[in-house]
Design a protein around this nucleic acid. Structure first.
Lengths: 342, 342
DNA sequence: GTGAAAGCGCTAACAT
DNA sequence: ATGTTAGCGCTTTCAC
């Protein structure tokens, strides 16, 4: 370990290899890439030299030259994705993990991009970028488009419906499916509890809910709460709601942590699920799967979305035209005991 | 959308800005970085030009020149981290998420590095790299060291104990704590079920277990199972173990999915937890937290590890000497009903 | 206060 | 089959 003298130990470059092998740098380059024929003897000399020196091409220089870095960016927009309370973020860590897996399988590096709106944050090299769950009129998306980074979104920017490079989830349909089932099970005073993040997920839930209420001639009751408030925030809100007059007979919570909070409060108040209050969540996680009773929840098929997003971005990077119809995924409702009255 | 003619639309470079502002490129560079004084008028001209053109410095070119990319790499070694069964990977997605958060807070991009042993995978630019849970004699770690990428590990490579740039967990101590408690609660036939990944986590657990057994004069019984086998693998193994003669009165499972599988089998066999078999896990996840009864488990404080690893890597990149003692973290045992006989 | 020019390490077009 | 050379877009001396 005494090798580590403070002197700057220059990285081994293609020049060093060329010199040691007694050839020109272009020969080295071509020998490494195999893009032109090299005599067997030269090739071995070069390989030995590279081996001996521990040569590895500098990816920056290569990328600068070729214009491709083999790296795609990921930006998770919901504020609570990064700074949210621990455990409130299964959806995001799962999405991020799925993206990394999907990218790695395609031999792409996935980079979590530092806040692009922060002038002090470094710009990182990427061939393209995936923006997950953009807000309405999303500034980050706008900035990316301005700087002409090829970008693909997961869920649409609800205020940019014409943007063709998105992978979509049918949140509205999922919400409607859940609401219809609640209606069938006899619910007539259904409360919707969404988050405050202004993205497709929350917007479509609200829209679907209002349409559903109107269709059944029921008065809508819609509360919202910042996602970062987590389980406890929902518990507090639920006290007000479940303990008051006009108690709902069903609650649809957008976030699974909210569903969990509502369930806890219901339990504390001595309300039975599903007999007194039915409960469903528009995101699935261990909060809902593992609850007792298990809570009906919408699985957003994040793994599928991740693969599709990476795929779509690759198409875009290959210069293909945008798809006529954006890839669209149906979330899967996991029916559980919390909505099963009979 | 007809704007997309096939002509290559060149990115805006510093040259374009210089030309438009009627100055040299070095002036533009300095104006952007503020590294030398620029007359107010020139500065505004440059800013306007940059604004108008939508200029953004090419991070590759900048990094090539400065030798810093602002990106650190993350490599999760356990095979099941990437290709593992869904849900078996909470530990890894949580670690990855925590790393991304920790990096982002330090204004660094975090990149998931494509398999460095795959010759076809692209090398990605990074200033340094974090290798999580290396194997004994880890090849990836070796390759990284060979190519002189500054690297920091999370958990040590058990066959490279002298490597000073690691952030460590005291897995042995945590395991011993759990075993001691089981002993106190009357357990005398404790089975250890580890994974087959040859990393510090599994090795230390085995060592601690053998030492503990020897100390109490108990015959050790150690089974192992590939982590990727997940809950079901453990269920199958548990049938053989719990249904046979010499049934253990306690099981310590390394992976929480294993604990879950064991619990399910116990339940299926009509064994009560903790009365008939006590159960503990050396990793915490929703499997253990959410089980009924809740399963005692070791919280690996991954968020702390992530912050410390990023921190340590930054030190290393700043040319600091390695710490005398590597940062060492105590996992926290979450005592739950599965180990509480009284 | 500003400009010219070298050069980071590589690839690829153009020689021979 | 191999070598020479022009740049990728930026930062940073060095000169004025």
């Amino acid at each position: 370990m005494t090798k580590q003298h403070d002197g700057a130990q220059r990285r081994v470059t293609i020049r060093d290899v060329a010199q040691r092998a007694g050839v020109s740098i272009s020969t080295v380059s071509h020998a490494m890439s195999g893009r032109r024929s090299i005599s067997a003897s030269t090739r071995t000399r070069i390989q030995e030299a590279a081996e001996a020196l521990g040569y590895n091409a500098n990816p920056l220089a290569r990328s600068l030259r070729t214009g491709r870095s083999g790296v795609i960016g990921l930006i998770l927009r919901p504020r609570d994705a990064v700074h949210g309370s621990l455990g409130g973020t299964e959806t995001f860590t799962r999405l991020a993990g799925a993206m990394a897996t999907a990218a790695l399988e395609k031999r792409l590096g996935l980079i979590h991009v530092p806040d692009i709106l922060d002038p002090a944050a470094p710009r990182v090299p990427m061939d393209g970028c995936i923006v997950a769950h953009p807000y309405g009129d999303d500034e980050v998306l706008a900035e990316l488009l301005r700087s002409e980074v090829p970008v693909v979104t997961v869920d649409e920017d609800p205020d940019r419906p014409e943007f063709p490079w998105g992978v979509l989830s049918d949140h509205g349909h999922a919400a409607t499916t859940v609401l219809d089932r609640l209606y069938d099970q006899g619910a007539r005073r259904v409360l919707l509890l969404t988050g405050t993040e202004d993205n497709a997920w929350n917007r479509r839930a609200g829209e679907a809910y209002r349409a559903w209420a109107a269709r059944h001639g029921l008065p809508p009751r819609h509360e919202s709460l910042y996602e970062g408030e987590g389980v406890q925030g929902a518990e507090r809100l639920a006290v007000r709601v479940l303990d008051g007059p006009q108690r709902p007979d069903a609650v649809v919570a957008a976030a699974s942590r909210f569903a969990s909070g509502v369930a806890r409060t219901a339990h504390a108040l001595g309300l039975r699920i599903p007999e007194d209050v039915m409960l469903a969540s528009l995101t699935d996680s261990e909060y809902t799967r593992g609850h007792l009773p298990p809570i009906t929840a919408v699985d957003l098929v994040l793994e599928d979305l991740a693969v599709a997003a990476v795929d779509l971005l690759m198409r875009r990077l290959n210069g293909e035209a945008p798809p006529q119809q954006p890839p669209r995924f149906q979330p899967v409702v996991q029916w559980r005991a919390s909505t099963a009255r009979r």
